[in-house]
Design a binder for these strands. Sequence first.
DNA 1: TGTACATCAGTGAACGCGCGTTCACTGATGTAC
DNA 2: TGTACATCAGTGAACGCGCGTTCACTGATGTAC
Lengths: 237, 237
Amino acid sequence: MVDTDSPGNAPQGIRARARAELLADVSRIARSHLAESGAAQLSVRAIARELGLASSALYRYFPSRDALLTQLIIEAYDELGESVELAAAAVDRDDLGQRFGSICHAVRDWARANPHEFALIYGSPVIGYAAPDDTIASALRVARVLIDLAADVPADGLVLRTPGPLNNTLVEQLTAANVLAGVDADLDVLVLGVELWAQLFGFVSFELFGSFKNAFEPADALFDHQIDMAIRAFGLA
Amino acid sequence: MVDTDSPGNAPQGIRARARAELLADVSRIARSHLAESGAAQLSVRAIARELGLASSALYRYFPSRDALLTQLIIEAYDELGESVELAAAAVDRDDLGQRFGSICHAVRDWARANPHEFALIYGSPVIGYAAPDDTIASALRVARVLIDLAADVPADGLVLRTPGPLNNTLVEQLTAANVLAGVDADLDVLVLGVELWAQLFGFVSFELFGSFKNAFEPADALFDHQIDMAIRAFGLA
DNA sequence: TGTACATCAGTGAACGCGCGTTCACTGATGTAC
DNA sequence: TGTACATCAGTGAACGCGCGTTCACTGATGTAC
């Protein structure tokens, strides 16, 4: 008899599937604890408790608490990176202003929907935890999308431009960024892009971490205005 | 016999002086622990241990751990605020570009000298801790210096200006900021100022929290360039 | 100037709780023949 | 198809440590008369 009663959605053995499910559960619960206690307080025991497992069981899945934290960080970078990539791809590639706006809104929207994950990757570093190199690739996804955009912005429309030549160090650093992303953006465009990148995340940090409290709540109008101004600075308006 | 052997530098009783000294010691030690373990891990017991006191002794000085945290936060805001005020006052008040640059450098310099205090006040909020209203006045000092500057910037030089009228909500929020600071800055200048404020702190966060890693290290040239561009955007160059 | 009393700083034990990680173990799943 | 063995998931006790906060107390400093 041919084995047809076992459905086709079992590409792995029963163990592999159980393992994948438990890993997902751990991640979900860990993220909820992130919101309730913060990254520094993330507790292997508390997660195991919520799963109904002995705390030692989790050591079959993660070598240490820090490894768990690393996975959460990578997941957060990847989620944000994917949102931003999708947002950039969702609009007309040649409408650079709209593309920039879409990217910015994706960052802010994801951050507001996942404030604790945002805090994990862009807030104060967790003391005593050193992020391993595994996080780098994921961390760079947002930057890459922005550099790609910069590479498409024509240099001659730029409203804010350095008078005279750029500082040597800066030229080296910007060139390295171009190389890393495999593009050849104009350096004056690129440096402005980096500064607007800092502005974007500064804004979101202010909004989420409380600096806008009692002043810019809601911050939607201010955000839209900031994007407008950035588009103008690029000469895309 | 007249009591002349007791020197004049005792404006308070022996107890009051001892208390002031111990409070200063607590603050100093707490700040060093901030660097070693982070705000969430700040421990009354560890501080008492380092002081050679029973942990219960500190409850004569602080009603709770959170109160200690509050004091550290206020101190940090005040230190930064004072640096920035001094920096703004140290230059020619009418040289607005220089004044802006001096303010920005003061923020960055203080943050680099006190990265953990910066993280405490501008990084991810400490979960489970709600800052009381006592912190507000100190938190506003930097913003006030910037708004004062904005009030002196002539509106007609502005390079980046909103096309058409500002959004209503934004007008209200900006007007409120003017009122709070007791000035009457042009709203187009003011909104640009707010956005450059976000940029300034975004930059410093990136630099201190690691987003510039492997890319803008050192970040000095980038910072100077960013300030240059901001001054241009204000029309002050 | 001296005395009586109130205030305050600091002690040390205790309460009740948390944590990460290791280890020898049981029993179930998977694999090679 | 069945059997023997290897791998893996999960257990529960233990190690050694941490924490904030309360409480009754001792002894020193300050104050009012």
